[in-house]
């Protein structure tokens, strides 16, 4: 049984190299978390008092401004950051796709990177060797996989990372916004595989600014604001609150039918 539970969790980053003096005044800007200055070392409260309970089958979209804490929350859910206050419990095999520049070695070939990522995700070398062909085919990178990763464009890196996670069967899939960098053709191809994967994998948490991707992959959403959960509910509700208008309004009929949504948000009056 796959689940993630977080109780009153906070994530505070100590900033060792920031000069305390220059941060004497507590800054509370619109972008970024709160900066606390009570301690000797200034801290940034990236997440504050988060309580969540995600279960199998949940497909959660994360929305919010830059610096609202989406990526940090994803890392909290991945178990990379353990809460500084509060607690968390993660049950299930996690496959994260975060910042695509980091966590991959630019000097080694695509194949080697596939291998290392697979090993990190708990696969064995043999299991990965079996999947390499499949990944090569899916990513359409072909012979390029023999090239060092530094020669790849951002989109090609996204393809590679998506190829790896979609080839294994993760129970919890955590995606950061970077995956929007692929071209439309690949996205269409990836979409069906992603939807399929999301159905198989127990849980998805996906941070994105792209509504169309959220529509396809998620059914609920969390709106993050200043390191706190501002709203947690159905995707449509949260997006409507976040954007200030119903994002489904201007979608055509077919798309709506495919997504299984009614053209009008039940709590709002409006037309197609």
């Amino acid at each position: 049984m796959v689940s993630i539970d977080v109780w009153n969790a906070s994530v505070d980053f100590p900033i060792f190299d920031a000069k305390t003096r220059s941060l004497k005044k507590a800054v509370l800007g619109k972008v970024g978390g709160k900066i606390g200055t009570e301690q000797k070392v200034p801290i940034i409260e990236a997440l504050h008092d988060i309580s969540l309970s995600l279960k199998e089958g949940d497909r959660v979209g994360l929305v919010g401004h830059n610096g609202a804490g989406k990526s940090t929350l994803l890392r909290l859910l991945a178990g990379i950051y353990e809460p500084t206050r509060g607690s968390s419990r993660i049950v299930g095999k996690i496959a994260p796709v975060f910042d695509l520049g980091v966590g991959m070695d630019p000097e080694i070939s695509g194949i080697e990177n596939i291998m290392i990522r697979g090993l990190f995700l708990g696969m064995t070398r043999k299991q990965m060797e079996k999947r390499v062909d499949d990944i090569a085919e899916f990513t359409e990178l072909g012979d390029y996989l023999q090239m060092p990763l530094r020669t790849y464009s951002t989109g090609m890196r996204v393809r590679l990372a998506l190829g790896v996670v979609t080839s294994i069967d993760p129970e919890i899939l955590l995606l950061d916004e970077g995956i929007g960098a692929v071209d439309a053709a690949f996205l269409n191809k990836a979409r069906s595989r992603m939807v399929d994967l999301v159905k198989r994998s127990g849980m998805l948490v996906f941070a994105s600014h792209q509504d169309d991707l959220l529509f396809e992959l998620c059914n609920t959403a969390i709106w993050m604001d200043e390191g706190q959960v501002k709203k947690h509910g159905s995707l449509r509700e949260v997006l409507t609150a976040y954007k200030g208008k119903d994002p489904y309004e201007h979608l055509d009929k077919e798309t709506l039918e495919r997504l299984g949504e009614s053209p009008v948000l039940t709590t709002k009056s409006g037309k197609i």
């Binding site: 539970d5 009153n8 309580s51 969540l52 309970s53 995600l54 809460p83 206050r85 607690s87 509910g233």
Partner: peptide, 22 residues
């Protein structure tokens, strides 16, 4: 938000203030 029983929440919160990570 999916509801968690408050009892469970409290128990978890108290049992793992510091001990959960250390």
């Amino acid at each position: 938000m999916p509801a968690t029983s408050t009892a469970e929440q409290e128990q978890a919160a108290t049992s793992s203030q510091k001990s959960s990570t250390r």
